[in-house]
Amino acid sequence: MTLQFAISPDFPPEHIAGWYIFNTWLQRTLDCAIHLQLYDNFNTLRKAIESDRLDLVYANPFDASLLIREKHFMSLARADNLQDEAIILTADQHPARHIEDLCPDTIIAATDVPDIEMMGMIMIEPADLNRDNTQLVTCDNYVMVAKQLLNGEADIGFFLAEAFDSLSDLVKKQLRPLVRSQIQVIHHSLMAGPVLHDRHTALMTLLSTMDTSEKGRGVLDALKISRWIPIDQEDSEFMIDLMDTLMID
């Protein structure tokens, strides 16, 4: 039987080779065939989860609830150096200096990454802004979001904080952060489905000790992950509870 492995579509494109290397490492370590499936948007990934087609997922926090509470997945690990934090930016020439300076009919540029959009929407609430009195323009990637701001086509942009940090200095200089989230407990997680439950503890150990071998470190480097931190079930339940409170409006 070939296991099906999917990664959340919001991975940085330059990590694609890294995920294939990781998949090869997983196949050798587990001694079974694993097919790495890439999805180009969150909807098609969700459909695959809903129709029970996946056994391993590197999941956006937004999909964690569906995977764990409905599809009986269990969390394995998260990347030590990666957290999902959002930042809201304007073009440097934009008159807004604070979130509270924003007015109804604000145009927002964002990608389709669901947790970042949710955090962005929460961070504009202090200006009494919400989905009903703003206009959301969905872009293919963060460079396009930045372009919307620089061209004056959007007032604010929602970014993954890391994605903003990795823009070129030239672009960054023309953008101004209005607010940056510091939530610290929302992160992507590697999760395993029911067929892997009997190997769960073994898999967690393999992942969390990956950085102790030279080969393992090479694989992690390709993914720009410093090491995998094991996640216990209650930690992921806690993150899901937190996400649940944020989705209520």
Binding site: M123, E125, P126, A127, D241, T245
Partner: peptide, 21 residues
């Protein structure tokens, strides 16, 4: 929100955010 584990409410979680003036 109530925290449900194995179908039972075991605790409550509260998350607060910034309100508008």
């Amino acid at each position: 929100i109530p925290n449900v584990r194995q179908g039972r409410v075991v605790s409550y979680t509260s998350v607060r955010r910034k309100p508008s003036r």
